[in-house]
């Protein structure tokens, strides 16, 4: 439903369209049951970055200080992309994996339930 406004044609380009991010796109990454990181985190990433680089170079910098992190068995991680289960191809780019601007990548690490099992 359109907004009620005092001017006609109340429409603007969204503030966060992909072209405003200098060649990057925003990718959000959340780690289920590890809310010591209070919210999913946001990264500006090149769309041609391999998914494997996200896992090896970006995610450790964000979550590596968690005591569960060294115990992650990466081949057992269950991924979700924008809410749907998916299996990333580590060699292929984010774009080829279907990771769009402002997509949410969630990882569930079986057997790891946060500090003291609290989901932290």
């Amino acid at each position: 439903m359109p907004v009620k406004a005092i001017r006609e044609n109340y429409a603007f380009e969204p503030k966060d369209v992909e072209k405003n991010f200098h060649g990057n796109r925003i990718v959000y990454v959340g780690w289920d049951h590890h809310l010591m990181f209070c919210a999913p985190v946001a990264f500006p990433l090149p769309p041609d970055m391999p998914f494997g680089a996200l896992v090896e170079q970006v995610i450790p910098g964000a979550f590596g200080m968690h005591p569960d992190f060294p115990q992650i068995q990466w081949n057992a991680v269950q991924w979700r992309l924008d809410g749907e289960p998916f299996t990333p191809d580590m060699q292929k780019s984010l774009d080829a994996n279907g990771v769009r601007h402002k997509s949410v990548v969630r990882m569930f690490t079986p057997g790891l339930n946060g500090i003291g099992g609290s989901g932290s």
């Binding site: 209070c38 919210a39 999913p40 946001a42 949410v104």
Partner: peptide
Amino acid sequence: KRFYNPSLPML
């Protein structure tokens, strides 16, 4: 090793 989140959050 006081914890600070090194990344920016999703809003």
